[in-house]
Write a protein that binds this DNA or RNA. Structure first.
Lengths: 125, 125
DNA sequence: GTGCATTTGATGCAGATGCATTAACCCGCT
DNA sequence: AGCGGGTTAATGCATCTGCATCAAATGCAC
């Protein structure tokens, strides 16, 4: 028997939990303090920028992220309120929304990415 | 140069994020559906049972967990409301609270642990 | 003992999340 | 064209979380 697989499972989970808690907490604080961004907002911006195309549909975005549809809807609403993205009608399918990053949003994301990488470097060192 | 360390950092973080999201979501749902327990409640019970001693002070418990002090306070309040733990005065330091697991709580935890391990086994397979 | 900083757990409050529902829209079938 | 089922994003609601604050209790300096 290979050293109690049950215990290993729980240990692996605890490791993930510990890592996630520490990093997400630090990230949340750093992004908030330095840029006024929550982690979900940054993550959404990040996915939009990563995709080569300028515009992203809400549902494509939701599929990439761990957020529920409603949470994403509100996160994008906050980003729009802060002028970092715009929500445009999609002519082909009028139910869909194109989320487009603004110039301000692009700048903000570039700055925030620096913060993110600094925090990650610190915690994964 | 060893394959862009920056990108590796972000990838590592995304892996943690993906894993945490999937598992915590599944765990939350499974525990809630099968036992009416949230993940934080289960985690708190788990820490109490894991500690060899019957009683745990709130602050010791908080130190073990990723929760804030206030969140823990309310999680324990929910556990007490459901009859799974009791909060007793501590004679030595009357600010402190002893959290003690009840028989009902012990049973519930034993059952919930089965669910937890099943979910973990499924996701870490 | 007295006074003051610290510690401990509870609570008011604002913000974020998920679930269920809703409104608008698309598509296929007749 | 019209209807019904499925899809997309927004919203009401309840819950959980963290921050700041509070009251009670401790203990340290004097």
């Amino acid at each position: 028997m290979a050293a109690t697989p049950e215990t290993n499972l729980v240990e692996r989970w605890r490791d993930v939990l510990t890592c996630y808690s520490a990093v997400s907490c630090a990230l949340e604080r750093a992004l908030q303090d330095a840029h006024g961004l929550g982690m979900s907002e940054f993550e959404a911006l990040d996915r939009i920028v990563d995709a080569q195309c300028e515009k992203r549909r809400m549902n494509e975005l939701a599929a990439d992220m761990y957020l529920s549809q409603s949470a994403l809807s509100r996160a994008v609403a906050r980003l729009e309120r802060d002028g970092l993205v715009s929500r445009d009608m999609c002519a082909e399918d009028r139910r869909s929304i194109f989320v487009r990053i603004t110039d301000t949003g692009r700048d903000k994301h570039a700055q925030a990415r620096e913060t993110q990488r600094a925090v990650l470097a610190e915690h994964f060192a």
